[in-house]
Write a protein that binds this DNA or RNA. Structure first.
Length: 312
DNA sequence: GGCAGTCAAGTACGC
DNA sequence: GCGTACTTGACTGCC
């Protein structure tokens, strides 16, 4: 088990997801922003590595407007060196990386143009991970998409559209159960029809249940990840008190998290904490999980002998 | 410098 | 049909 947080680190004095308005777009602005974002990402990776935070979600905003027609600049070549350097650092620390395009990425949309835009967005995410030299265990997670008043038809459309995605996208793409539309069971059905791995979001599962117990959900989603995909990824959060259902908590609730660790045994997975105070909660979670054999087993993996054996 | 409105993109839902 | 939430930050123009 590796534990991590998404996109933003509030302790490092920089942002790796700086962007700008479309109206301000220029090649100079893009170069300047991407250079800043990569430099900051490198600092965040170092921060995480020094503290044992070995799972991180890279922001989609590293290259603003990368999939937009306005962007004709060859950022891939221009920033190749920087991306390779960051990738080498990630690999050296055996970190797990994910990315999560936002809700506008919909491969089951009725609208062919929305599908095309979504494919461009997915290609951008995968290309970034490819340029970092990360293997297929670095995943790009999306939700299934819209229901459009007819869930079976929308799931059929997902299956057909998934088959049209290129290998470069399919090798990284995973789907996640969401808080309103598609349950864990829906995602499992899509896995059965496409082979796409299912990322379990335990908080969304609570809000949008389907009758499967937590243990069954762990077991069935874990079975959708092949060895080449790496350990299953799991998203974790808890309800922000007093807010509408689905709002993420500001800070980790230690008691609740301890119970989650106990309830999730013996499943092993990499855990993304979707909690608003980001790295603070990740550090707290790592301290709480310190006695958990799943985390301890990973620490052993850092020793030279284990590293050598894992490469064999 | 501080503030508030607004930001590429889509869908679902409440009014 | 319109406004809002989504996850939320931070860009941007205005004072």
């Amino acid at each position: 088990m590796k534990i991590g947080y998404p996109c933003i680190n509030r302790s490092v004095q920089c942002s790796g997801s700086k962007t700008f308005r479309l109206a301000s777009y220029s090649e100079a602005r893009l170069k300047e922003t991407v250079a800043n974002n990569l430099s900051c990402l490198e600092r965040i990776i170092s921060y995480n590595a020094e503290r044992g935070i070995l799972f991180f979600r890279v922001s989609s905003d590293i290259v603003p407007f990368a999939s937009h027609p306005v962007c004709v600049f060859g950022w891939q070549g221009h920033f190749r060196g920087g991306l390779e350097r960051i990738g080498a650092r990630i690999r050296a620390h055996r970190m797990r990386i994910s990315m999560h395009p936002d809700q506008f990425t919909l491969i089951n949309s009725h609208d062919e143009e929305i599908y095309d835009r979504s494919v461009r967005e997915l290609r951008y995410h995968c290309e970034l991970l490819d340029l970092c030299g990360l293997d297929r265990t670095a995943k790009v997670q999306i939700h299934v998409g819209g229901v459009y008043g007819d869930k079976p038809a929308s799931m059929d459309r997902f299956v057909r559209r998934y088959a049209r995605l290129g290998d470069a996208v399919r090798r990284r793409l995973v789907i996640e159960n969401d808080d309103r539309l598609y349950t864990v069971s829906d995602c499992l059905e899509l896995h059965a029809r496409t082979g796409v791995p299912v990322l379990l979001d335990v908080f969304h599962r609570e809000i949008n249940p389907d009758g499967l117990s937590l243990k069954e959900s762990f077991k069935k989603t874990a079975a959708t990840w092949l060895k080449r995909d790496g350990l299953p990824m799991v998203d974790y959060s808890s309800q922000l008190k007093g807010a509408r259902p689905g709002s993420h908590a500001v800070a980790l609730d230690p008691r609740r998290f301890k119970k989650f660790l106990a309830d999730s045994r013996p499943a092993d997975f990499d855990l993304m904490l979707e909690i608003k105070d980001k790295e603070k909660s990740a550090l707290r979670a790592i301290r709480i999980a310190a006695g958990d054999p799943r985390l301890r087993a990973f620490k052993k993996g850092l020793t030279k002998s284990c590293r050598a054996s894992s490469m064999s």
